[in-house]
Design a protein around this nucleic acid. Sequence first.
DNA 1: CGCTTTTGACCGGCGC
DNA 2: GCGCCGGTCAAAAGCG
Length: 462
Amino acid sequence: MDSPPPTAAHFQANTQPDTSDDKLITEVDFFTDKKHDLSNSIESSDNYHRSTAPNVDLDFKINTGLHLLTGNTSSDQSVIDDGVSPISDDNRTKHELLANAKAEFERMSGENQRLKEVLNKLIIDYNMLEMHIATMIQQTQGESKRKEDLAGKGSTRSSFMDLGLAAPVTAENDENYRSSSEGRSHNEHSQSIDKDVNRETDGIDNSTEATMRRARVSVRARSEASVITDGCQWRKYGQKIAKGNPCPRAYYRCTMAVGCPVRKQVQRCAEDRTILTTTYEGNHNHPLPPAAMGMACTTSSAARMLLSGSMPSTDSLINSNYFTRTVLPSSNGLMASISASAPFPTVTLDLTQTPTPLQFHRSSGLLQKFEQSHSKFAGLQMSENMDAGETGWQPSLQLHPNRPPHAALADTVTAITVDPNFTAALAAAVSSVIGCGKGAGNYWNNTNENVNGIKNNNKVRD
DNA sequence: CGCTTTTGACCGGCGC
DNA sequence: GCGCCGGTCAAAAGCG
């Protein structure tokens, strides 16, 4: 109290912990611990800023907000320098200091808000770029592989294959698919080829195994709502009562972009009507709001993991009638299992044992860990960190039996800590379980008009 | 009026 | 070949 702080910046940082922390915590809920950790080690932030986690890096900068203050504390410094004044002057000085601090704090809050918006955009751009690059790599590999296959076969169906396979996953592809299913004058063979070609929506699998092309990711969650809010815009296109379950199964198609191939099925559990099972299929071909990013990344990564990860032992995996492995123990609040039962392999993420947000906060981290680890594991063809993060999967698929699980776990924890998708995934997952849909936030509200416009186009397309 | 949802029909895959 | 079943389509109905 008596001794003045060494610098103005440190003074601001250390003398307003109550108000600033409260403010920060109310604004950003998820990473309070991280913020405190970093604020304690702010001196070493220069090294940290060169880390490989751009969003976490920026997030820390924003939440501390200390650097922004250093240039505006000259007045504070002068006040402190005048500390030799009489008591009345000292009181006045304290009031001035308080007023200045409040003003600075308000300005900081505004600055913080603006920076967070910038950060949000950066995260979105980063994720989009990452997904785009991954898709491009996968498409390139898939095309080369298919060209090899076509060259080897040289069959009469090559014309169909070329049309479909040479093109990226776009609206045109979906048009081909739709026209193939609508224009039923095609013979059965060409129809099946067209469908197989154009339904390969994720560009993940470059295998010729048609049965492996439609990996699915199933999410089980408790929800009173008819559908869980995952940040995307869906249009219902069908409903069926499946055998063995009196609850109807609803079919939805993503309407955020024209020709987006992603579809999902929603069905309530027959035994427990409060459990909603949502099954995703395909990858989005358009930018996603942050709230949708997590779910999309999780599902696509899980699907990629499933397809790629099964490749080394595909035969045994597919040939078994039913293959299920528990990836994460239920004590963690999350069950994830893989089922390669024909014809479509499915990853199931069970969120039904996470009734409280606190519990889910932990389990969603595991969800992301699951995604992160398997994304890296599955993305072997493009990942440089092949030896990190294959936690939990190795016991299931037995691809890296020589690596101790606890070491991989540490790698995975480190990986999720710096994962730029983590924030969005967490927000989306929490909002999904809560079922409020508020996790989409401002971005979603801002993009709603565009979504409606897209839906108009989609209607025209339909 | 335009968009979404509903719902019956249709199609293809699969098992017998 | 036939029937069952899941998935999709598209016209009709509903809704704001």
